[in-house]
C-alpha cells in the first residue's frame, strides 16, 4: 500500500521541478530547436523544388536547342542543295557560253583564214602571172633573136588562127 500511495512531498517537488524544466526547455531548447529544424526542412524542400524546376528548365532548353539544331540543320541542307543547284547552273551556263564563244572564235578564225588565203592566193596569182610574163618575155627574147624562128612562130601562129 505504501508503494502505491503518492507522497505529498515528492508530488510537490515533481510538480515544481517539472514545470520549471518544462518552461526552461520550452523557451531555450525546444523553441529554437524546432524552428531550426523547420527552417532547415523548408530550405531543403525549397532547394529540392528549385532543383526540380531547374531540371525542367534545363530539359526545356535542351529540347528547344534540339529543335533549333534540327531547324538549322534543315536550313543548312536546303542552302547547300540550293548552292549546289546554282553551282551546277553556273557551270552549265559557263560551259554553254564558252562553247558559243569558242564556236564564234573558230568561225571568226575560219573567216579570217579564208580571207588571208584569198589574199594570199591573189598575191600568188599576181606573182605567178608576173613571173610567167617575165619567163615568157625572156623566152620570146631568146627565140626572136634569130629570124627563122620568128617566121616559124608566125607561121605556126598563123596556122593556128582559124579564120
Amino acid at each position: 500500500m505504501e508503494l502505491v500511495t503518492p507522497e505529498i512531498g515528492l508530488v510537490f517537488w515533481t510538480t515544481v521541478s517539472f514545470l520549471v524544466l518544462f518552461f526552461l526547455l520550452a523557451k531555450f531548447a525546444w523553441k529554437p530547436i524546432m524552428s531550426a529544424i523547420d527552417d532547415r526542412e523548408r530550405s531543403i524542400e525549397d532547394a529540392l523544388l528549385k532543383a526540380e524546376a531547374a531540371k525542367e528548365e534545363m530539359s526545356r532548353l535542351t529540347n528547344e536547342n534540339e529543335v533549333l539544331l534540327k531547324q538549322a540543320r534543315a536550313e543548312r541542307d536546303l542552302i547547300l542543295s540550293e548552292a549546289k543547284k546554282i553551282k551546277e547552273q553556273i557551270i552549265a551556263d559557263a560551259k554553254e557560253a564558252a562553247h558559243k564563244e569558242g564556236a564564234r572564235q573558230i568561225e571568226l578564225a575560219r573567216v579570217e583564214i579564208n580571207n588571208q588565203k584569198a589574199i594570199a592566193m591573189a598575191d600568188v596569182k599576181n606573182q605567178v602571172a608576173e613571173l610567167s610574163i617575165q619567163v615568157a618575155e625572156k623566152i620570146l627574147q631568146n627565140q626572136l633573136q634569130d629570124q627563122q624562128k620568128q617566121d616559124e612562130l608566125v607561121s605556126q601562129l598563123l596556122k593556128e588562127v582559124k579564120l
Binding site: 524544466l21 531548447a29 529554437p32 530547436i33 527552417d39
Partner: peptide, 20 residues
C-alpha cells in the same frame, strides 16, 4: 534535470551555430 538542461541547451546552441 541538470542533465536534460545541459544536453538540450548544447543541442539548441548547436542549432544556432550551425543554422541550415
Amino acid at each position: 534535470f541538470v542533465l536534460l538542461l545541459i544536453i538540450f541547451f548544447s543541442v539548441s546552441a548547436a542549432y544556432k551555430k550551425r543554422a541550415g
